[in-house]
Simulated assay, not measured.
Amino acid sequence: MPLSATTSRSLVDQAIDGMRDLLADGEWTVGTRIPAEPELAAALGVSRNTVREAVRALAHTGVLEVRRGDGTYVAAANEVAAMMRRRVGRVDPQHVLEVRQAIETQAAALAAERRSEDDMRALTELMERRAAATAAKDADAFADADAEFHLGVVTATHNPLLIELYAGFEGNLRTMIHLGDETTDLADAHVAVFDAIRTQDPGAAVAAVTGLLHTLGR
């Protein structure tokens, strides 16, 4: 959709917002290459110079990554995720666990109150994928399913700011999830979180997440 120059905001700012919308809508996902300058300029209805400036700005924040001779790739879903991506890998894992507890306990309570049937179907599928990956001893599939389950819980809050904040952790969480750490207690803890959300019991959801993260931190 062509951008209008009649507002007080610059076309570069509007182009940046247009790209943010593509990221937020899931049309551009992390790891994918974005369209080339001419195509993007045509889609946004601006000049290639405007696109170039917008890309440069988003690359500076860490949302995009310009690879010389290869194109521009999505490095993070938004500026918050980009900041968390830089920070999480540099701090004590215990500090990460404490922040996760602060976010995930509240998220679990809200998810128990607000979850939809679609949310439960998604969480059910992720629990099944997690169990299947454990049985198959597939470390990569396990890390993906586990990280996506936790993000799925946050997604079930239907709070866009909370989802955006937690999404900043997700990429880093995958690198911290190891199939070898899986125990019966940890598997049971995930089931407890799932059951509390399914039965729409916020108190049980908070207790389940607290227990899960305590087990994880042992």
Score class of each variant (00 low, 15 high):
Leu3Arg: 15
Ser4Phe: 04
Ala5Asn: 15
Ala5Gly: 15
Thr7Tyr: 06
Thr7Asn: 05
Asp13Cys: 01
Gln14Pro: 00
Ala15Cys: 04
Ala15Asp: 05
Gly18Asn: 11
Arg20Lys: 15
Leu22Asp: 04
Gly26Ala: 10
Glu27Val: 09
Trp28Thr: 03
Val30Tyr: 11
Arg33Trp: 12
Pro35Arg: 09
Ala36Trp: 15
Glu37Phe: 10
Pro38Phe: 14
Pro38Ser: 14
Leu40Gln: 08
Ala41Val: 11
Gly45Ala: 03
Gly45Asn: 04
Gly45Gln: 03
Val46Lys: 14
Ser47Tyr: 09
Asn49Phe: 09
Thr50Phe: 04
Thr50Arg: 10
Glu53Lys: 08
Ala54Trp: 11
Ala54Pro: 00
Ala57Gly: 12
Ala57Arg: 15
Leu58Cys: 10
Ala59Glu: 07
Thr61His: 11
Gly62Cys: 10
Val66Tyr: 13
Val66Arg: 15
Gly69Asn: 14
Gly69Gln: 13
Tyr73Asp: 00
Ala75Met: 11
Glu79Asn: 00
Ala81Gly: 10
Met83Arg: 13
Met84Ala: 09
Arg86Tyr: 13
Gly89Val: 02
Val91Trp: 07
Asp92Ala: 15
Pro93Thr: 11
Pro93Arg: 13
Val96Asn: 09
Val96Arg: 11
Glu98Asp: 08
Ile103Gln: 09
Glu104Lys: 01
Leu110Ile: 03
Glu113Ala: 07
Glu113Leu: 05
Glu113Met: 07
Arg114Asn: 10
Arg114Val: 01
Arg115Ser: 08
Arg121Trp: 06
Ala122Val: 02
Ala122Glu: 03
Glu125His: 14
Arg130Met: 08
Thr134Met: 14
Asp138Arg: 05
Asp138Trp: 03
Ala139His: 14
Asp140Lys: 10
Ala143Ile: 01
Asp144Arg: 05
Asp146Cys: 10
His150Gln: 08
His150Gly: 04
Val153Pro: 00
Val154Ala: 10
Val154Trp: 09
Ala156Ile: 01
Asn159Cys: 06
Leu161Phe: 15
Leu162Ile: 11
Leu162Asn: 13
Glu164Val: 10
Leu165Glu: 00
Tyr166Pro: 03
Ala167Gln: 12
Gly168Ala: 13
Asn172Glu: 12
Leu173Asp: 09
Thr175Ser: 15
Met176Leu: 15
Met176Ser: 13
Ile177Pro: 03
Leu179Tyr: 12
Leu179Ala: 10
Ala189Asp: 06
Ala189His: 05
His190Val: 01
Ala192Leu: 03
Asp195Val: 01
Ile197Asn: 02
Arg198Asn: 10
Arg198Ser: 11
Asp201Arg: 01
Ala205Cys: 05
Val206Met: 11
Ala208Trp: 03
Val209Gly: 01
Thr210Pro: 00
Thr210Met: 02
Gly211Thr: 02
Gly211Arg: 01
Leu212Glu: 05
His214Glu: 03
Arg218Leu: 06
Arg218Ser: 07
